[in-house]
């Protein structure tokens, strides 16, 4: 693959936004986009885990190719991601109890987050190298955070709007996500 780093970043962040185009990480997207500050913190947490995942996925893939066991990739990704999230959790707990209180509830969510596993799989599929993978992870994290933050803004405003009762809830959030997705189509072709 000969994609340039900027292409990879723009692609993962805007054109093929993890949430709005690939539907990766929809659960946290729907779950924690209600308030801006949680959205920002969640975005930061996911971006961090994505970067760590990208690094470990690269290592695992290299190892599995070396020993000729590609069939173990899925199961090892899962194991490593779970371990990574545990590690992050412990790390945060130790060094920033305040941050832990703020992010703690999200971390189990992150471990069962398609965005994380999806990144590992897509990165492997596309055959990205170490640096490419890192840029990909950063782009994906930035895109995820961007979608989450935009969503949070709109939802905070809708909290006080006279939204019809039937619509309020997941349906409304999905509809807004659809509109954001349409708006993000404007970025198509930017990577070329």
């Amino acid at each position: 693959m000969n994609e340039s780093l900027s292409t990879i970043f723009v692609n993962a962040c805007l054109i093929n936004n993890f949430v709005l185009a690939w539907f990766l990480g929809i659960c946290p997207f729907l779950g924690v986009s209600g308030k801006l500050d949680t959205a920002v913190r969640m975005g930061a947490a996911v971006t961090f885990v994505l970067v760590v995942t990208s690094l470990s996925a690269f290592g695992i893939q290299a190892l599995l190719t070396a020993i000729g066991a590609p069939y173990l990739s899925l199961i090892s990704f899962i194991a490593v991601i779970a371990a990574t999230v545990q590690l992050v959790e412990m790390f945060i707990k130790k060094f920033s109890p305040a941050l832990f209180r703020a992010l703690g509830i999200f971390l189990p969510l992150i471990s069962t987050n398609c965005a994380i596993l999806g990144l590992a799989l897509i990165q492997t599929n596309k055959g990205y190298g170490l640096v490419q993978g890192l840029v990909f992870a950063l782009g994906a994290g930035a895109g995820f955070t961007l979608a989450l933050v935009l969503m949070a803004g709109v939802r905070e405003r809708l909290d006080f709007a006279k939204v019809p009762d039937v619509v309020r809830g997941t349906a409304l959030t999905l509809a807004v996500a659809g509109l954001l997705s349409v708006a993000f189509m404007g970025f198509a072709g930017l990577g070329a």
Binding site: G153, L180, F184, G186, A192
Partner: peptide, 19 residues
């Protein structure tokens, strides 16, 4: 970008930023 025109998308994206 890929498209010749982007005003519509620009305004929609900016709308999302207004809150």
């Amino acid at each position: 970008g890929g498209m010749p025109e982007g005003v519509m998308y620009a305004i929609l994206l900016a709308n999302a930023l207004v809150p």
